[in-house]
Amino acid sequence: MLNETPQNELASIRKLMERSVTFVSLSGMSGVLAGIYALIGAAFAYQQIYSGEAVRSLEYYGGRIPMVQNLLLIAVLVLVSSLFTGWWFSSRKANKLGTSIWNATSRRLLINLAIPLLVGGIFTLVLLYRAYFDVVGAAVLIFYGLALLNASSNLFEEVRYLGFCELILGLLAAVFPIYSLHFWTVGFGLLHIIYGGLMYKKYDR
C-alpha cells in the first residue's frame, strides 16, 4: 500500500491543475437540451420559410421582412432558453461538486466566449439590416465555432472538436446558402445533442 500515497497525490495534483483552468460545472445535459431547442426552432423556421405563400428561393427574403423578424425571434428564443438551461444545469452541478458557478475560471471562460460571440452577433445584425440574408446562417455558425475554439482551453478538450465541426458547417453554409437552415439544424441541433450526450456519459455520471 506504500506506493499508493505518492501516486494518489500526483493524480490529485493533476486533477487540481485541470480543475483550476477548466470549467468543470458545465453539464452535458444542457448541451442535449440546447440541441433539442434548436431542432424545435429549426422546425418553426422551416415552416416560416417553406410553407404558406411559397417562398422557394432566398432572393425573396428581402421583400419579406415580417418573416425575417419571425426567424430572428425564433433564433433569440432558442438562444435565451439554451443560455438559461446551461446556467441552471451548471449551477446544479456546481452545487453537487461543492464548488461555485461563479469563479475565476468561469469568468475567464465567459470573457473568452463573449468576445467572438458579441462581434458575431453584431455582425449578423448588420448582415440582416443590409439584407445579406443568404450568408446569415454561415456567419452565425462560423462565429460560434470560433467562440468555442477560443474558449476550449477553459472547457473540456472535446469542445475544440465541436468548434471545428461548426466551422466546417459554417463554410459549407456559405457555399450552399440554399441549405443554410439544414446546416444550421445540424450544427446547433444534432451536434449539440451528440456532444452533450457524450459529455454527459463521460463526465456527469
Binding site: 487540481l16 485541470e18 464548488t99
Partner: peptide, 16 residues
C-alpha cells in the same frame, strides 16, 4: 494551480 495558470487571486485560490 499557479503552474497551470497565468496568475490566481487569493479568494479564488481559497475557494478552489
Amino acid at each position: 494551480v499557479l503552474a497551470a495558470n497565468e496568475s490566481y487571486d487569493f479568494n479564488a485560490l481559497k475557494e478552489l
